[in-house]
Nucleic acid binder design. Sequence first.
DNA 1: GCCGTTTTCGGCCCGACTGTTTTCAGTCG
Length: 581
Amino acid sequence: MPWAIRSFMPSIKIVDLNNSEIKNSLKLAAQLMELHGENPFKTRSYVSAADVVGGLDAELSTLSTDEILAIDGIGKGMATNISGLLERGSFDNLDKYMEMTPAGVVEMLGISGFGPKKVAVLWQEGGAETLEQLMELCLQGKVASLKGFAEKSQETLKAAVAFLISNQYKEKYGNIDQAIANLVSAIDGLKEVQSCSESGQMRRRMEVIDLVEIVVAAEDLDALRTSLNALQVLSEEEKKSGPTTWYGRHVGIKAPLKLHLTSPDKFVQRLVETTGSVRHINMPIADQVTIKSSLIRPFESEEELYQSLGMKYIVPELREGLKEIEWAKNDQIPALIEMSDLKGILHNHSTYSDGKHTLRQMAEHCQQLGYEYLGISDHSQTAVYAGGLQDADVARQQEEIKQLNEELAPFKIFSGIESDILADGSLDYSEEILSSFDFIVASVHSGLNMDIKKATDRLLKAIYNPHTTILGHMTGRLLVQREGYPVDHKAIIEACAETGVVIEINASPYRLDMDWRWIDYALEKGVKLSINPDAHRMDGYQDMYYGLQVARKGGLTAKDNLNSMSLPEITAFFEQKKKKK
DNA sequence: GCCGTTTTCGGCCCGACTGTTTTCAGTCG
């Protein structure tokens, strides 16, 4: 899967836009131009400029105008657009088309499977200017009679619009964690503030956030509110605020923001109350006792509170109201995996397919970060769009891996492939080629709208293929953006238990797939997991952090995580798996 | 809008898939 993720609303930034934001803005402009029937070649130039920007090494914000003009695919006009984006977050042509297009129509462009041409029909023929109007049109059955549409696309559209409407005010954790960290430190820096911490879903490391919560302690709450409202990134919705809450928005973030204002002596109580899920704080601990019912006196620390209830301390990411209270009461909280437990990085791409950096760059960077090994798994031949490897490329890559391994020892590169799981569940190469790899990540990249039976059978066949080492991004979901294909999680996990296939926790903040809610069941069945970044560039390794957060939520420990194995251990693991064939 | 050029115009990328057609347009990776 290429790294490019469609994002249609350029986020509003106070600072310079980065390349991926510039890329998204150019892509959006291209879509709007196509929507309005602009010259297709002109439109294409925006698309290709966007692709070029996406593949750049250096951030555009660090380049001079001459350097930008020297980039292949960027001419005078595009350079002007880019400098507009860098200076004010937009450019004239984009502004022009945005003004001509209702906001709801712009959102429609985000529906997968429906491009500018189809959206133009929905808008101009169907008269839909908002998502709600489009839903109405679907419900009345009027979409099916529009040119180029029929019953089936009406149904698809209805589901997609419902998904979009339900995700309108949600954000991926990885999209906003930096901005929220900045906000917390800005609030913490206000002169009135004594303590400040994120809480709620953010602190629990939920993969999708629909409410950002922060607890702020100060003696003078009126003065605090005045200072908060002076922060440029915030805008209060006074009607929804209360005497001890500030409710409103952070610029550029779709999820609403709730600040809990409290006196310093009640800070810990407020933090515990707002961090845990409703289930967690109301879960019975003893007769008539819950965490919520215990928050009646001040505590020095959260540790003190949990201790006072005869429990071990529960880290925020576990406070979901699942098994954690039971664990804490019986001193059975798992030793959750930590960053330092990750010994190597599996499932990565290089320039052999659609990665941005060479095999050598990917390997050397991995080594510099202190890891013992790298598993490279470029796309397989069916993934033509991603430059998937033909047989000859596989041989060439394996030869280079051999040479690099001699040079970089004791660091080791494992030769793998991200083999497409074809529609019938088979893998993408001959037996001979499949046998030549150290490990194989099997993933679905096409035919994403199968029903649960077909999709599950397809995965099962891939799992029972003796060559499969790891099952990649199990459901194909893109958080807040695309629902995954439906699968029978239990059946898949049980098949992995039987075959020894490892289940990936795809660490990309766009995916975080398999969902952490299934980790417990996988562990119960004795299945190993692997936190894999699916990196398409060197800095993609950083996504391991996000995978780690959700892995901890699911209760994963180092001993059940594949890439926590040392180099000798994982070498033996791969060899063992190959022998079983 | 970009690029290259026998330099100021004329050409510009692809293969598979899907759902809609009745031979193909739109979308995507």
